[in-house]
């Protein structure tokens, strides 16, 4: 018998039936309160800000200009984007407006040295946002590489207000859940942080030191 078979055999031999531990049915009834729909945006923004993220409330007309101003404030000279249409438009816009920011879209395998050592900021697009925890859902894939939201010191995530949901439970029960699951699905709720030294918060532990959320309130 293999280890696998022996482990499973031991688990299967466990007595069942004489246990008073009849589990309460796992039901879909909500037991933890979620914010009302009217409060979703406020809750999301508040939670993100509590977690040291910056939220840009903007719209489809002006978000690129608003973001560019932020990038300039952060002295970003090299911005890395995923391979989706939104990134293409952003790249075009930045190229038309600024000579100081080199915007690259990832189209081939990412060179580790480049992303670790040369890129200042990464631009990602979320597929949903969760109000109760202030979380952005990122489905990685060919359009949305995993490292873009992880390695550069500044992480920018775009999300649309129509993509807001109450919380993770609501998301998990909704049709938003991709099937099949992407190889890597992420909830991001702030910049990287640690409190491992004497419970003192420090940002930028291993991942981004800063997170800017671009919220399109008319989309």
């Amino acid at each position: 018998m293999s280890s696998r078979e022996r482990i499973l055999a031991r688990l299967r031999q466990a007595a069942v039936g004489d246990s008073p531990r009849v589990p309460q049915a796992v039901s879909s009834d909500r037991v933890w309160p979620a914010p009302d729909k009217a409060d979703w945006l406020d809750a999301l923004c508040q939670n993100l800000r509590d977690n040291h993220a910056e939220v840009l409330l903007t719209d489809q007309q002006t978000w690129m200009a608003d973001l560019l101003a932020r990038l300039q404030k952060y002295n970003v000279s090299r911005l890395l984007c995923g391979n989706h249409d939104t990134a293409a438009r952003l790249q075009q816009y930045i190229q038309s407006q600024s000579d100081d920011i080199d915007t690259q879209r990832v189209t081939t395998d990412i060179e580790k040295e480049v992303i670790f050592q040369q890129v200042d900021a990464g631009f990602s697009v979320a597929s949903a946002a969760l109000a109760e925890t202030g979380s952005l859902v990122i489905e990685t894939g060919p359009q949305e590489p995993r490292t873009v939201s992880l390695v550069p010191p500044l992480n920018i995530i775009l999300v649309r207000q129509s993509q807001l949901q109450a919380d993770f439970s609501a998301w998990a029960a909704s049709t938003s859940v991709p099937d099949p699951m992407p190889t890597n699905l992420l909830l991001i709720s702030g910049p990287s942080k640690t409190a491992d030294i004497q419970q003192t918060l420090a940002y930028g532990a291993h991942g981004p030191k800063s997170l800017i959320v671009v919220m399109l309130t008319d989309a």
């Binding site: 202030g134 099949p180 890597n184 992420l186 709720s189 942080k193």
Partner: peptide, 13 residues
């Protein structure tokens, strides 16, 4: 309320 990252891995690249 939630950790900074919740990382769900469903396969290699």
């Amino acid at each position: 309320k939630i950790s900074t990252y919740f990382n769900m891995i469903s396969g290699p690249k």
